[in-house]
């Protein structure tokens, strides 16, 4: 904890030295976080990261205020009203995790017209005047197959666990996985189930399809939150556990660590850190500071590999998700990458 805030403070200090005028430019600016949902561990961690990093930024005088607001229900109308309130309250920038990609466009446009900077992240908005800190979910799916291709050059049969049917994220990750498989023809997806990103749903779905699948499945490609359930289903069916890609949940990492200690089990884990809210915060601060920031930015993945598993597991709250907070320098790096 202390170390992270230390790094943040250091980063803020470094920024003030490097940018020179940064303090003067944004120290009187107010930034608000508009959030539509807080009912799972990911969102809780997202809010805590925001509090930690922006609290320090306010104390250091980087910005005047960074208040977080969450709507009671996950509803577009409510969040639109919340944004209108923020306009009236005179915030200079709104960092937004939107309930809908299109539904808030009217309110976002109003904010832009009032001269307010709007930075959307995770749940992004399509309104052109807003910035988007988006996740390349398709690449995330493809990375899983690329990792497997490197690890198992001979290829083999794969089982795919998808997320919640009908959600954009599920389609994106899955299309990335399928694209990766198409490019690496030594792999073949022999079964696909929906695990709804929940371990018990995934366990049930995998248990149902497993008996009808061939014995020589080499790996399970997943979307996060479902790896542990898949492992349980393989165990219950009395099968050897294949390589299961994990999604940074604490129970997945813990299981992986146990297997690693017991038999040298190897895999990797990838997801988005809830701390992405802090990246959006620094992006907003940079825009207020007058920096030239492209409208479309990409969030880096938080990837855990064999050698940094212990370190990440130790930093992950029991029952939570592996997390990292971003610094001003991280934000600058993301902006520079987008410019290229």
């Amino acid at each position: 904890m202390k170390r992270v805030t230390g790094i943040v403070a250091l980063a803020a200090l470094g920024a003030s030295v490097a940018a020179g005028s940064a303090f003067a430019d944004t120290s009187d600016k107010k930034i608000a976080l508009s959030n539509n949902y807080a009912g799972n561990s990911w969102r809780q961690a997202m809010l805590r990261s925001w509090e930690k990093v922006t609290g320090q930024a306010v104390a250091d005088g980087v910005v005047a205020a960074a208040d977080a607001f969450t709507t009671a229900e996950n509803q577009v109308t409510e969040q639109a009203a919340q944004i209108q309130n923020m306009i009236l309250e005179g915030y200079d920038a709104i960092v937004l995790n939107a309930a809908s990609p299109e539904g808030l466009n009217g309110a976002v446009k109003e904010a832009c017209d009032a001269g307010i900077i709007v930075v959307s992240f995770d749940g992004i908005v399509t309104e052109p005047c807003a910035w988007r800190v988006a996740v390349d979910f398709k690449q995330m799916g493809k990375d899983e197959v690329l990792y497997l291709a490197e690890k198992m050059p001979d290829g083999g049969k794969l089982l795919e666990i998808r997320g919640l049917a009908g959600v954009f994220v599920d389609d994106e990750i899955s299309s990335g996985i399928h694209e990766g498989v198409a490019e690496n023809a030594q792999f073949e997806i022999v079964g696909s189930v929906h695990g709804d990103w929940a371990q018990d749903v995934a366990q049930k779905a995998v248990a149902g399809i497993l008996p009808s699948l061939p014995e020589d499945i080499v790996a399970v490609v997943t979307q996060g939150g479902d790896g542990y359930g898949a492992a349980q289903a393989f165990k219950a069916a009395g099968r050897d556990t294949p390589l299961i890609i994990m999604g940074n949940r604490e129970d997945e990492l813990k299981w992986w660590k146990e297997q690693k200690d017991a038999n040298g089990y190897e895999t990797m884990s990838v997801s988005i850190a809830p701390g992405v809210s802090t990246l959006a915060f620094w992006v907003a601060q940079q825009i207020l500071d007058g920096a030239d920031v492209p409208k479309d930015l990409t969030v880096p993945f938080l990837r855990i590999d064999q050698d940094n598993l212990e370190e990440n597991l130790a930093n992950t709250e029991p029952g939570g998700v592996a997390n990292t907070e971003y610094s001003l320098d991280d934000a600058k790096k993301v902006v520079d990458e987008a410019k290229m």
Partner: peptide, 14 residues
């Protein structure tokens, strides 16, 4: 015919 028994076992479990 593959997995006929396995599916039933899983079905009874859940």
């Amino acid at each position: 015919g593959q997995g006929a028994g396995g599916v039933l076992t899983a079905a009874f479990s859940f």
